[in-house]
Design a protein around this nucleic acid. Structure first.
Lengths: 122, 122
DNA sequence: CATTAACGATTACGCATGTAATCTGGCGAT
DNA sequence: ATCGCCAGATTACATGCGTAATCGTTAATG
């Protein structure tokens, strides 16, 4: 089962720090999302049902922690998009952005360094 | 308004060749998708309502053609993902895939050439 | 103890989506 | 002029999602 975008926002909090109580998650999100508490609780519940997180009882509360790894989620999402839109390869995506002048100096530098690095050990 | 994944499959047909009648779209999709005709007609209708395509009457039928450009769609989708998952920059995405050994020789070659090209005229 | 407060669970609800069946109006064939 | 067919229009329906209010149970407090 895959998690929705709103759910992934909750995951972000837990990926950054865990375990956390529901209140702590709510607190972390109050700043950046305009969500009611119950909304966040709903999302925590759905994430539990999807087994993207686990809850461990701690007195009267639960401590939530991620099961789904951020890297796995990111990979799943990225691969999905790259498969759908770029024939499953990265280069065309980068080309696309370069054509739209969306590569920053920093991107270019980092890519350059990365590619050089790969050149060697492969 | 944005188009859904199923809708984008129909768009793919029209991006490849247009204008097309509904029947031609259906024909093109029969091969790759296990969809009933009515499903495809529904999708054409939703695309019309979203103004992603236009229909021009041609006798008793319509000829459909895309309004939404493929590049725009691709850009919208890619940017959304890169913003959500990689802080809005391309390099981290490429790094992610390189870490997962998902860069093919071909990708690396193309990226190398691309980066070199950018180096010059910028 | 009895009452309240806190927290998680349950229920809600409108909209988009995937998937499709059915309706309808006009054109072509008798 | 009539009838049937076909393309497109309308309707259908389950599921997931975004967003939230309310319920119920258990722990704390008076």
């Amino acid at each position: 089962m895959s998690i929705s975008e709103a759910e992934s926002v909750v995951m972000d909090v837990l990926w950054t720090k865990h375990p956390l109580t529901a209140d702590e998650v709510i607190e972390a999100l109050k700043k950046r999302m305009d969500w009611q508490e119950s909304t966040i609780k709903t999302l925590l519940n759905r994430l539990l049902r999807k087994q993207a997180i686990v809850a461990e009882r701690d007195g009267r509360r639960y401590l939530y922690r991620p099961v789904l790894k951020r890297a796995d989620y990111v990979h799943h999402e990225s691969k999905g998009l790259i498969d759908r839109l770029f024939g499953g390869r990265i280069a065309p995506l980068v080309v696309h952005f370069s054509e739209h002048r969306k590569l920053s100096k920093r991107d270019i530098m980092e890519l350059k360094r990365l590619i050089e690095g790969l050149d060697h050990d492969d």
